[in-house]
């Protein structure tokens, strides 16, 4: 198992937001966490990424306990997290943003080539300041910066945030081609059809707890999921 989360609880200022979360991601697998706004998806992702110290439970990467590691150490161990707000370096060029993804090393040529293959639109914009890009392009830089680290696990929080439907679809197509290259992905997304289009497995998070788990096919057929997330009566 690459990522193993067991009985995890996390929250803010003593308030529990997610609890009792058990979740697994195998190497090469694409796993979706679906749930509505406020279900706790971001809190869960932040706790795994080390941005939020879990209140209870355990997070391990390839068997190594990393529950209380700070974010920079989690990143160094090969977990790249792309938050919904992206957190690019706005006054730096696209190129410098990408290069920093490999910190403290120099970026590998293959890693940069992969980024340009997945996001050809970035190539002509390498010298542009990241802060001047459109939302869709910034999302590409954020994912690109994470890819340059050649992560063992790529975590994305709401990649569709702030994107027009067409661009959101493009973003998930890009994730699909990463999947085709064997990348392990953990994606939190409230647009359930998009998430299920790329996932091998999905977890449904409701009020901070995992209520369902299954393949896209199983989740798709589940009457609860259909009513709550797919707009089917």
């Amino acid at each position: 198992m690459l990522l193993e989360v067991s009985t995890l609880a996390a929250g803010y200022l003593g308030q529990t937001v997610v609890q009792g979360v058990n979740l697994e991601v195998s190497p090469g697998e694409v796993v979706a966490i679906i749930g509505s706004n406020g279900a706790g998806k971001t809190t869960l992702m932040r706790a795994i990424a080390g941005l939020l110290r879990p209140m209870a439970g355990r997070v391990s990467l390839a068997g190594r306990d990393m529950t209380r590691w700070p974010a920079h150490r989690v990143a160094g161990a090969g977990v790249a997290y792309v938050p919904a707000e992206r957190h690019l370096f706005p006054a730096m060029t696209v190129k410098t943003n990408l290069v920093l993804g490999a910190y403290p090393h120099r970026p590998q040529r293959e890693a940069l080539e992969l980024v340009f293959e997945i996001f050809p639109a970035l190539k002509p914009r390498l010298q542009q300041r990241a802060g001047t890009l459109s939302g869709g392009q910034q999302q590409m830089v954020a994912v690109g910066r994470a890819l340059v680290a050649q992560p063992r696990l790529l975590m994305l929080d709401e990649p569709s945030t702030g994107l027009a439907p067409k661009l959101a679809k493009d973003a998930f197509e890009a994730l699909g081609s990463l999947k085709g290259r064997g990348m392990t992905l953990l994606v939190a997304e409230q647009q359930v059809p998009l998430a299920l289009s790329v996932a091998d497995r999905g977890y449904v998070l409701e009020n901070g707890r995992i209520t369902l788990e299954g393949t896209p096919h199983e989740l798709d057929r589940n009457p609860e999921v259909r009513r709550a997330y797919l707009g089917v009566a």
Binding site: R73, A75, F89, Y103
Partner: peptide, 15 residues
């Protein structure tokens, strides 16, 4: 990078 976005810096592995 820490000056411009501290959280972004942490995410690329900078302390």
């Amino acid at each position: 990078s820490v000056i411009q976005d501290e959280l972004g810096a942490r995410l690329v592995g900078i302390s």
